[in-house]
Nucleic acid binder design. Structure first.
Lengths: 203, 203, 203, 203
DNA sequence: AATGAATGAGACTTCATTCAT
DNA sequence: TATGAATGAAGTCTCATTCAT
């Protein structure tokens, strides 16, 4: 039984992985169920054995994968004892490394879920709000610790922070930037330096 | 003839406006040519009188509208004699006001063109690079004027700057933020304060 | 008025000529009314001023042109005082020369009318029967004059005779044969020799 | 599997047979894929399961069926030990009988392929040239055997021979002649007599 | 579990024809 | 006469989904 369960689970993962790859390449709407099946090496009828329909595949990707990422984020942000700015830098490095290891997944999240079909809007928004809430909380911790400027608006900061991530991923997706040629630390340092000290010259 | 020309031009604009509205609502792929026609109040056959196909409608929107926006950007950035930071703030206000007046258009640009169908990728990338180049140039002007910190990397700044715009528009598109309740100046001030002074507490 | 009539007549001919050219090139079904109009150098709406619909253009071509050819045939066959075989040879030369001067027209007759749309079947059949009847009559004249073998079946002969013409025109239409490189007299002589003397060796 | 293969093969034949019938009735251009499907008793989507598009159906008919006929021709012509004229008569009988048994197929070949859509022109021409080549070769054999008049031009003969077939089939297709009322042998004898002995009276 | 044949809604697009100017 | 904008029926083809095996 356990054997069966596992085999079935593996098949499902095969299909999900294939779906991520195909969605990343062609987008959700332009991907055919048969593309996914072919990529997974199964007959397309089998896809319907594991998923109710095409939408559910996307939803499952979101739930299984992205939610997982969000949890990692939360853990990283909440449990770490380092300074807030340090943790923000760590997360940038972490998220870029996730991309480097699984670009297709992040592409799907960026290109498909973020600008998401009606049927997923609510879930997506909730997910983002959780993430943004985590960052804001982190900022408040930093402010209490005297490490973050009191005048900083945590929400505005979260906007800039996620904006930096989003725009970077978009640039990569559009092939304007070659992510493999970009050391994660350098990028993170560059962003965090800017966010920390601003652009204004000090007299 | 001139009369005819004008009437024909008006019809074309009607269809383009309808297309922007429909694309903004449902996205390019989910929009039917018949949706656009109905919205424009014409028979769907007429759409093909003015455009070769659905793709060309999107391409025309991009060329006619976004290119126009980019020109406005360039003018604003290059011709203004105010301080760089002031001009960056002005542009934020300008772009948000464009959105307030024509949310659908910006939605289409954000949701469809940015994560663009293969057939437009190159044009879109070129368009963005022009815009980013403008911001970087502005930064350099500010650095020469002693107004912008020399250590600032203009490219990184452009990333943060556009990231802020993108993520804001996305938030609006996802209805997380109500843009009408958000005074343009306050938002711009908030973003520019952050970008100017950073989050780090000063000893 | 006469002036008007003539101008109107000329326009109509322009459109017919254009239609013949276009039908010959692309076939009736694949030809668009706008193709014909463009070829004739008029707006496509004007076509409907002169013809009720597309079918009527084809029908008019048939009636005006092919009927005319058939009359020429009849005259040639009936009025000529030369021997029957001579006259048959003359007609072959004549018909090939018609082709050389107006290939498109003959192509339309061969490719479109012969394998004709339902709406023209009857007229086409009648036209052919008239032509075949002419040939048969000619044969009988020849038999009475002792010039043509009595055993010859006039109908069978007409089949072979028209078959030779049809298959030649088809070969030209399919570009298997270059009609301009083929002297009309040689071709006619070759066919008539065959038809006159047969292939069987004489003991 | 073998069972599956066979069933699938049968379905494909069903659709091809339906297509032949429909094409013969209405012509390629006027035939709707849905007509074919309805005739075959399947949903029209299934047609696209077996064929890429409508053109491919016609091409398959040509390749599978006509090529087969040509092979039969070649065998008949090359392998037979009887006199050339005898073999030519046999082939006429054979081809008429093919028609009697499968009029639709021959109609399609005559009406659609012969005056063929651009996309098949080359294949069709090649096919015809093979057939004509066979006839010419047969003539030469007959000339060497002293059975055929040396003066006969094999190519001209082939023109007349195929012309007779084509014009007969056309006459049947146009319903000028009732093929079922026409004994194959009589027709073949009539044609061959004419072709053998000519029409000229012998002094 | 697995296959892929079968279905049919639905989308794009073409183009003959009408009609206002 | 002449134009070409406007209409919409009709056709091809795609593809998500179902289902028999």
């Amino acid at each position: 039984m356990a054997r069966q369960r596992k085999k079935s689970e593996i098949r499902k993962q095969q299909i999900l992985d294939a779906a991520i790859a195909v969605f990343a390449e062609k987008g959700f709407h332009s991907s055919r169920v048969s593309d996914i099946a072919r990529r997974a090496g199964v007959a397309y009828g089998l896809v319907y054995h594991y998923f109710d329909n095409k939408e559910e595949i996307l939803r499952t990707i979101f739930l299984e994968r992205w939610t997982f990422i969000l949890q990692v984020i939360e853990n990283l942000l909440n449990e770490d004892k380092r300074s807030a700015i340090d943790r923000l830098r760590s997360f940038l490095i972490f998220i870029i490394d996730v991309y480097k290891r699984n670009a297709a997944l992040v592409d799907v999240i960026m290109l498909e879920l973020l600008h998401s079909p009606e049927f997923m809007r609510e879930e997506v928004v909730r997910g983002f709000q959780r993430a943004a809430g985590g960052i804001e909380e982190l900022m408040r911790q930093g402010q209490e610790a005297g490490e973050i400027r009191k005048k900083t608006n945590p929400t505005t900061f979260a906007v800039l922070y996620f904006g930096a991530i989003e725009v970077t991923f978009n640039a990569v997706a559009l092939r304007v930037v070659d992510i493999d040629a970009m050391p994660s630390e350098d990028w993170a340092d560059s962003i965090m330096d800017q966010l920390s000290h601003g652009i204004a010259a000090r007299d």
